[in-house]
Simulated scan of single mutants.
Amino acid sequence: GELQPGDPLIERDLAEKLAVSRTPVREAIQRLKTMGLAVQVSRKMVIVAKPTSEEVINTFDVREVLEGLAASRAATNATSEDLIYLENLAEEMEQCIAINDDDKLEELHMLFHERLYRASGNKKLYQLLMDLRDCIKAYTHIGYAFPGRKSEASQEHKRILEALISKNSRKAEEWARKHIKRSKEAYIRELQKDSQI
């Protein structure tokens, strides 16, 4: 979140700031371009991309299907450690909602989904979902701004967790897909409220 859409990505400056050589920075910028998070605007200039609302919505659509698959697989493959970790995160998220700590809530939310993806046991699925999440990470807070969405999302996380604990693949997939679909709907409603789409 430090760099905003339109900010330049200057290899030399980033390498100095991160105290690394320019080679890994160059590779990272190339990966960002591949993911659509950076755009080459001239031969020497790369900037932080600003996805359109349509691109964000399309990403939600793909994420809904893949997240459902991850939850379904996690219902079979999650370890007791995974379940305890997810349970603790769900409780901490509720506490954040109660005290309006949105920064911590967003961090915990990301950790919940990352662990869910990992618990699927499918490394390719994990990587695809992490890339999709990273593509719209900066926009997920928009949906949380919609009244009641934080509490609704918290309940959805609990339903996903219940399905994982009971090893119900169908319910886990159903609730994971609902969660992403409702997040997308909240994002759209919030943009419409602000007349951005």
Results as ranks from 00 to 15, higher is better:
residue 2 E to G: 05
residue 4 Q to R: 08
residue 7 D to W: 01
residue 12 R to P: 15
residue 13 D to Y: 07
residue 15 A to G: 12
residue 16 E to Y: 04
residue 18 L to V: 15
residue 20 V to S: 11
residue 24 P to D: 07
residue 24 P to M: 06
residue 27 E to S: 11
residue 28 A to M: 10
residue 31 R to I: 00
residue 32 L to A: 08
residue 33 K to H: 08
residue 36 G to P: 05
residue 36 G to M: 09
residue 40 Q to W: 12
residue 41 V to C: 08
residue 41 V to K: 03
residue 43 R to Q: 10
residue 43 R to F: 11
residue 43 R to A: 09
residue 44 K to Y: 15
residue 46 V to S: 04
residue 49 A to M: 04
residue 49 A to H: 01
residue 53 S to A: 11
residue 54 E to F: 06
residue 54 E to Q: 12
residue 54 E to T: 05
residue 55 E to F: 00
residue 59 T to R: 02
residue 59 T to C: 09
residue 63 R to A: 02
residue 67 E to V: 07
residue 68 G to S: 07
residue 69 L to Y: 10
residue 74 A to Q: 06
residue 78 A to Y: 04
residue 79 T to H: 08
residue 80 S to P: 03
residue 83 L to R: 10
residue 83 L to V: 05
residue 86 L to D: 05
residue 86 L to F: 03
residue 88 N to Q: 14
residue 90 A to C: 03
residue 90 A to N: 15
residue 91 E to H: 13
residue 92 E to I: 03
residue 93 M to T: 14
residue 94 E to I: 01
residue 95 Q to G: 06
residue 95 Q to L: 10
residue 96 C to D: 07
residue 97 I to N: 06
residue 100 N to T: 09
residue 104 K to I: 13
residue 105 L to I: 00
residue 106 E to Y: 04
residue 109 H to K: 10
residue 110 M to C: 07
residue 113 H to G: 11
residue 115 R to E: 12
residue 115 R to I: 15
residue 116 L to P: 00
residue 116 L to R: 05
residue 120 S to F: 08
residue 122 N to D: 15
residue 123 K to L: 13
residue 130 M to R: 14
residue 130 M to F: 13
residue 131 D to S: 11
residue 133 R to D: 14
residue 133 R to N: 14
residue 134 D to F: 04
residue 135 C to G: 12
residue 136 I to M: 05
residue 138 A to V: 09
residue 139 Y to W: 07
residue 140 T to D: 13
residue 140 T to P: 14
residue 141 H to Y: 03
residue 141 H to E: 10
residue 143 G to E: 03
residue 143 G to R: 06
residue 144 Y to N: 14
residue 144 Y to A: 05
residue 146 F to K: 07
residue 148 G to I: 01
residue 149 R to M: 11
residue 154 S to T: 09
residue 157 H to S: 06
residue 158 K to I: 08
residue 161 L to V: 12
residue 161 L to F: 03
residue 161 L to E: 07
residue 162 E to A: 12
residue 163 A to H: 03
residue 164 L to T: 13
residue 164 L to Q: 10
residue 167 K to E: 13
residue 172 A to S: 12
residue 173 E to G: 11
residue 174 E to G: 00
residue 175 W to A: 05
residue 177 R to D: 02
residue 177 R to G: 06
residue 177 R to M: 15
residue 180 I to P: 00
residue 180 I to K: 01
residue 183 S to D: 14
residue 184 K to M: 15
residue 185 E to Q: 09
residue 188 I to R: 02
residue 189 R to Q: 15
residue 190 E to G: 01
residue 190 E to S: 04
residue 191 L to A: 02
residue 191 L to T: 08
residue 191 L to Y: 14
residue 192 Q to D: 02
residue 192 Q to I: 13
residue 192 Q to G: 02
residue 193 K to H: 07
residue 194 D to A: 11
residue 194 D to G: 07
residue 195 S to V: 02
residue 196 Q to E: 10
residue 197 I to N: 08
